[in-house]
Design a protein around this nucleic acid. Structure first.
Length: 271
RNA sequence: UGCAUUGCCCUCUAGU
């Protein structure tokens, strides 16, 4: 059963969801009883290809058949709905499960807070944050990162710094995503220097910058018309053994183009 | 007994 589930998961990961489904149907037809892990993998697959409604249908079917969906399954569905910008439907499910004895966990709250932030409902997200605290469901680094990121995107950098201070006081260490959000926030305010300080600080604190960290800074330099520094960072990233991804190429190539340096852009494109 | 499933950060384009 484990290998079966892993296989399906692997197929979904490789965007071979249709194959995964085929496989799932065959197994069920030959009398195999899928467990919660397997169901969740399938449900997530449906959400990923934009068929959240099918996922919800599967959930209801499980429910009716007495399949007892667990909090992980509900979290997957709630996240799928949020990513489809159907936060209200996600909240409906949240209230529904609270009423029937499935305890929301730190994932549930983080997912919903993320959805609320993405639909410009920061106040509601804070309310959920307070609610989870009052229920003794402790926010973790991801929960805090969601708040930090939202504040950074709104340009409220000192508030974001405040949250980081609070998280540290609570014994939750910021990770690379926290620093990346902060760097991005500074770049959005055209404060590349401050972003660079964060970048350097994260190295000192032992969080290795990843390709995303580099990309944020590269983008910051490009937007500030400092293309040469952007190029240097790109090279340094490779020197550090990081493999540039599609984002890195896009960022630098469009930066070069906007600066009128089309030849260099073409060179890079060839890689 | 162990092992598998859910949440956070970056680019461009298009749409609105």
């Amino acid at each position: 059963a484990v290998t079966f589930s892993s296989l399906i998961n692997g197929l979904c990961f490789e965007d071979k969801f249709a194959r995964a489904m085929e496989f799932f149907d065959e197994m069920v037809a030959s009398g195999y009883q899928p467990n919660l892990h397997t169901y969740n993998t399938i449900i997530k697959g449906f959400c990923k290809i934009g068929k959240t409604n099918v996922a919800v249908g599967l959930l209801k079917k499980m429910d009716r058949a007495g399949g007892r969906p667990d909090v992980v399954i509900y979290n997957t569905i709630i996240d799928g709905l949020c990513k489809d910008r159907l936060v209200n439907e996600a909240l409906d499910i949240f209230y529904e499960i609270k009423g029937k004895g499935v305890r929301p966990d730190v994932f549930t709250y983080s997912i919903l807070m993320h959805g609320l932030c993405n639909s410009d409902q920061k106040e509601e997200a804070s309310a959920l944050f307070n609610e989870m605290m009052s229920l003794n469901i402790m926010p973790d680094v991801v929960t805090f990162n969601i708040l930090v990121d939202k504040l950074c995107k709104e340009g409220m950098l000192s508030e974001a710094q405040g949250i980081i201070k609070i998280m540290i006081e609570k014994g939750v260490e910021p990770n690379y995503a926290t620093y990346n959000s902060l760097m991005n926030g500074y770049c959005l305010q055209n404060k590349v220097f401050e972003a660079r300080m964060v970048f350097d600080a994260m190295i000192t604190k032992g969080s290795k910058p990843n390709v995303v960290s580099y990309n944020i800074l590269i983008n910051g330099y490009c937007k500030a018309q400092r293309i040469d520094e952007a190029r240097e960072l790109f090279d340094e990233m490779r020197f550090q053994g990081l493999i540039p991804n599609i984002f890195n190429y896009n960022t630098l190539i469009s930066g070069l183009c906007q600066a009128g340096r089309h030849c260099e852009a073409k060179e890079l494109f060839k890689d």
